[in-house]
């Protein structure tokens, strides 16, 4: 971080993105930065080797963050010009692979046949104009604790493919705005095994259009996965007690009596810890119902 810039506090970013007030006054003035738009992954990796370089996906979170002066990169490296990182395809084994720079609107349209629940999730992010810019790689790398994609990625047991390695979703997310990504590492694609049935149920926070609570339930031949976003101070998580109950019996009633400990839930003006904990149960039941 350069002189004059404060290191970003995840809580400031969270509060700003969810409609909180700006920590600094001049919101229309970003710190100055250079801009590069490489056309290959190799060139992007090279450009990101510069000190304080920052990758730019669709910018739908990063640009507001820059406007709030919560980040001060020396150079933004746009990933939008890399053709090999855009698009949706189904591999021979049936897995759905989405390029890291693919906008949500493209996923919503092109994955609708192969993985309808994930396409529906993509179609609920933000609003139409945001979905035309925001990308899956940007969302997953940012790991906003109320973003939709982390729930779909963790709930599907997807694999995050970067320029250097492949990481299982279970090992990827490390808490609010934190992942295992190294400096300069780029999400080139995300690979989703397609479940037998799945559903994402989002309780919308209508001002920010993020999830107040969102639950992704996916039923595979070898078990059920339940991933929760919007609720925990630690970001997206798997509700393993619910998974165990649903593995015994895949019905909403199987969740009766199960509850989430509210201690670790997010509390803000939109909902208390107890309210979010309650919503997790309700949205999980709805997701199971929708998957039947």
């Amino acid at each position: 971080m350069r002189l004059g810039a404060l290191p970003p506090d995840p809580r400031d970013i969270y509060s700003q993105m969810k409609g909180g007030s700006a920590p600094f006054g001049k919101e229309d003035e970003m710190y100055s930065f250079d801009f590069e738009k490489p056309s290959s992954i190799a060139d992007a990796v090279a450009a990101l080797g510069a000190e304080d370089a920052q990758a730019l996906g669709g910018g739908q979170t990063l640009i507001p963050t820059l406007k709030q002066r919560l980040a001060a990169p020396s150079v933004l490296v746009s990933l939008s010009g890399i053709a090999e990182m855009r698009g949706v395809c189904v591999e021979d084994d049936g897995a759905l692979v989405i390029g890291g720079a693919t906008p949500h609107a493209i996923v919503a349209a092109e994955a609708a046949g192969s993985y309808p629940a994930l396409a529906a999730l993509a179609g609920q992010i933000g609003d139409p104009a945001v979905r035309n810019r925001g990308t899956i790689g940007g969302s997953v790398a940012n790991n906003d604790p109320a973003a939709c994609y982390p729930a779909g990625v963790l709930g599907s047991g997807a694999t995050i493919v970067t320029n250097t390695r492949q990481v299982a979703a279970d090992d990827f997310f490390e808490g609010m705005f934190a992942t295992v990504l190294e400096e300069g590492e780029i999400i080139t694609s995300v690979r989703f095994p397609v479940p037998q049935a799945a559903s994402y149920q989002k309780f919308l926070q209508p001002a920010s259009r993020f999830a107040l609570v969102g639950v992704y339930v996916a039923r595979f031949a070898d078990g059920v996965r339940v991933a929760v976003t919007g609720a925990s101070e630690d970001g997206v998580f798997r509700w393993t007690e619910a998974e165990a109950a649903l593995n015994k019996e895949f019905r909403p009633d199987a969740l009766t009596g199960l509850s989430i400990n509210p201690a670790n839930m997010i509390a803000d003006l939109h909902g208390s810890k107890a309210y979010r904990a309650h919503l997790v149960s309700v949205m999980t039941k709805r997701a199971v119902m929708a998957s039947l």
Binding site: F35, G59, I63, L76, V130, N132, R133
Partner: peptide
Amino acid sequence: GVAVKSCNMLALE
């Protein structure tokens, strides 16, 4: 051809 919010996109993009 697609709608975007121009206050949330860099001119160079």
